[in-house]
């Protein structure tokens, strides 16, 4: 097992290296010359050249890349072109709303999607099953901002059950915090719920045909204990895999959801950075999200060895 864990951890290094190279190239290829911007309008070409040399911008690509990686490893993500603040600092300020949104969405999605998938598999072919599968197709088809505006219109503007927009920090109490996150989480969770419900149903259908399920039924185990204890445990590996892969959907969706609900998180930061062409910020956010995504999936791969001890690589 340890050999597997070490091999799996080492395997993330080339992936991370590729991501770093891609993100660095983004800034390298970005239009606009930072040296000319710093030099200002009055500068002569010689001045620009001197500033470029002092910033180290005249050195070869790979030299600059290695220096950049070195700075990242020390926690220095560069400085925003627009606000002149360190990118790491800007990200730290915006991380709480996004993290809250993701966690609430994840909890909500798992607690809805898994029972949905299990029941659909149990009642295979009935109207319940068809309703779940129909919902899954809808969840894949209706984009996150459409669900977002619809929910906001019905539940915030018309019914006035939830605030329309905004975010309240967790420090100001659990209730105000969660109140602002319910609608965004439902909107963001739609695709994710569809994805997980579908894989749960497919895996459960397979597991429910196994002999040991018949044995459990024969010895008199109750229906819910068969479904949720005997079967679901053995369906866990594919479900957990999809939960991990689906994080990419959550990250992409968060960018949009935060725009719809005016949540001041990392997604909002990304959108603002794009509109201003603030490349260091775009770079920092893409780097952060990708590393989180890689690490989550690494964690899930390592979880396999505990979920299914038969797995030996």
């Amino acid at each position: 097992m340890w050999a597997y864990i070490i091999r799996r951890v080492l395997a993330t290094i080339p992936v991370m290296a590729f991501v770093a190279l891609f993100v660095f190239s983004l800034l390298y290829l970005a239009p606009g010359d930072p040296a000319a911007v710093i030099a200002g309008d009055q500068a002569t070409p010689d001045d620009v050249e001197r500033i470029r040399a002092s910033l180290g911008l005249d050195r070869p690509y790979l030299v600059r890349f290695s220096e950049w990686v070195f700075r990242i490893l020390q926690g220095d993500l560069g400085t925003s072109i627009f606000t002149n603040l360190p990118v790491g600092h800007m990200i730290a300020q915006r991380i709480e709303p996004t993290l809250s949104l993701m966690i609430v969405t994840l909890c909500l999605a798992l607690s809805i999607a898994i029972p949905m998938g299990v029941v659909a598999a149990w009642k295979q072919g009935t109207w319940i099953d068809r309703a779940v599968m129909g919902f899954a197709v809808l969840g894949f088809s209706v984009p996150v901002f459409v669900v977002g505006y619809l929910l906001a219109y019905v539940f915030a503007l018309e019914l006035d059950w939830f605030p329309v927009q905004g975010y309240t920090p967790f420090a100001q109490g659990f209730f105000p915090w969660i109140e602002n996150l319910v609608l965004p989480a439902v909107a963001l969770g739609g695709v994710y719920i569809a994805l997980i419900a579908r894989i749960t149903r497919a895996t459960m259908l397979e597991v429910l045909q196994q002999d040991y399920i018949r044995t459990a039924r024969a010895k008199g185990a109750g229906q819910s204990s068969i479904l949720f204890l005997h079967a679901l445990k053995n369906a866990a590996v594919p479900i957990v895999t999809v939960v991990g892969i689906g994080i990419a959907l959550l990250i992409g969706g968060a960018v949009v959801t935060e725009s719809v609900f005016a949540i001041p998180g990392l997604g909002r930061l990304t959108v603002d950075a794009i509109l201003r062409r603030d490349y260091p910020v775009i770079q920092g956010v893409v780097l952060l999200f990708s590393f989180v995504y890689v690490l989550v999936n690494l964690g899930i791969d390592l979880l396999y060895t505990f979920l299914d001890p038969r797995i030996r690589y």
Binding site: V15, M16, V19, F22, A248, I251, F289, S290, Y293, N297
Partner: peptide, 9 residues
């Protein structure tokens, strides 16, 4: 490597 960057990002 490409797949580790969420597609929308």
């Amino acid at each position: 490597g490409m797949m580790s960057i969420p597609p929308i990002l």
